[in-house]
Simulated assay, not measured.
Amino acid sequence: MKAVIQQEPTGCGIAASAALAGVTYDEARAVASSLGIQAADQTLWSETHHVRCLLDAMGIAVSPVEQPFESWDALPDRALLSIKWRREAGRQFWHWVVFVRDEQGARVLDSKKALVNNTRRDFGRMRPKWSIAVLDQ
């Protein structure tokens, strides 16, 4: 699995979904658009509903509940993570990333365009708030 770079400043949920589905950002954005989901919609990164709908439309099953982050070792082999979690005007916001553990080891696929390397292993710098397990299919 490879990181997909977000093409819009607020497109992290679309990019994370694209990485999990193994498609390009533009392909995931087209599916999102057909569902009425736009990157500029704040609920894409302040609620889980839109990303869940997008993943479902792309055939990716996820857990129906968010699990509080306990440790990197406790995460399932594939999960969506909320990092950079914050509260603004009473509403929670975060940046979506994908956690993967496979034969290449554990890593986070971060879609942020400004990063030098979008495959991250600097776990001590990231502060996940919770995760959503990606279910095996």
Results as ranks from 00 to 15, higher is better:
residue 105 G to F: 11
residue 129 K to H: 14
residue 65 V to K: 15
residue 83 I to L: 04
residue 78 R to M: 06
residue 25 Y to W: 05
residue 61 A to Q: 11
residue 100 V to N: 00
residue 31 V to R: 02
residue 25 Y to N: 01
residue 80 L to H: 04
residue 27 E to P: 01
residue 16 A to V: 06
residue 9 P to H: 10
residue 129 K to Y: 12
residue 42 Q to V: 12
residue 60 I to W: 03
residue 51 V to E: 04
residue 4 V to S: 00
residue 132 I to H: 04
residue 104 Q to S: 07
residue 23 V to H: 01
residue 78 R to A: 03
residue 128 P to Q: 01
residue 20 L to N: 08
residue 49 H to P: 13
residue 8 E to W: 07
residue 105 G to H: 13
residue 68 P to N: 09
residue 67 Q to A: 14
residue 10 T to E: 03
residue 137 Q to E: 14
residue 4 V to H: 00
residue 53 C to A: 14
residue 15 A to G: 01
residue 94 W to L: 03
residue 109 L to I: 14
residue 126 M to S: 06
residue 98 V to H: 00
residue 23 V to A: 05
residue 113 K to L: 13
residue 116 V to I: 15
residue 42 Q to S: 15
residue 88 E to I: 06
residue 80 L to C: 07
residue 47 E to C: 14
residue 116 V to L: 14
residue 42 Q to I: 12
residue 128 P to R: 01
residue 10 T to S: 04
residue 98 V to N: 00
residue 8 E to N: 08
residue 43 T to R: 09
residue 117 N to P: 09
residue 62 V to N: 00
residue 85 W to V: 03
residue 92 Q to R: 15
residue 99 F to K: 01
residue 31 V to N: 03
residue 120 R to W: 06
residue 9 P to Y: 08
residue 133 A to M: 10
residue 118 N to I: 09
residue 75 L to E: 05
residue 61 A to M: 11
residue 14 I to E: 00
residue 103 E to I: 15
residue 19 A to D: 04
residue 18 A to K: 02
residue 45 W to N: 03
residue 29 R to K: 13
residue 117 N to T: 12
residue 107 R to H: 06
residue 118 N to H: 08
residue 106 A to F: 05
residue 74 A to V: 11
residue 107 R to W: 06
residue 38 Q to C: 15
residue 131 S to A: 11
residue 41 D to A: 13
residue 77 D to K: 12
residue 49 H to A: 15
residue 9 P to S: 12
residue 62 V to R: 01
residue 106 A to Q: 05
residue 126 M to P: 14
residue 11 G to I: 03
residue 47 E to K: 14
residue 104 Q to Y: 08
residue 14 I to R: 00
residue 103 E to D: 13
residue 12 C to T: 06
residue 36 G to R: 11
residue 117 N to G: 09
residue 34 S to A: 12
residue 105 G to E: 08
residue 46 S to A: 09
residue 50 H to V: 05
residue 70 E to W: 12
residue 62 V to T: 02
residue 22 G to P: 06
residue 57 A to D: 07
residue 35 L to G: 06
residue 38 Q to S: 15
residue 113 K to Q: 13
residue 90 G to V: 05
residue 3 A to W: 02
residue 16 A to I: 05
residue 29 R to C: 08
residue 66 E to V: 02
residue 74 A to H: 10
residue 117 N to E: 13
residue 48 T to A: 11
residue 98 V to E: 00
residue 117 N to R: 09
residue 91 R to W: 10
residue 25 Y to H: 02
residue 104 Q to A: 08
residue 114 A to E: 13
residue 132 I to T: 06
residue 62 V to D: 00
residue 38 Q to R: 14
residue 79 A to P: 09
residue 51 V to C: 09
residue 119 T to R: 03
residue 24 T to R: 02
residue 82 S to A: 14
residue 2 K to T: 15
residue 100 V to R: 00
residue 51 V to G: 06
residue 21 A to T: 10
residue 5 I to H: 01
residue 29 R to D: 06
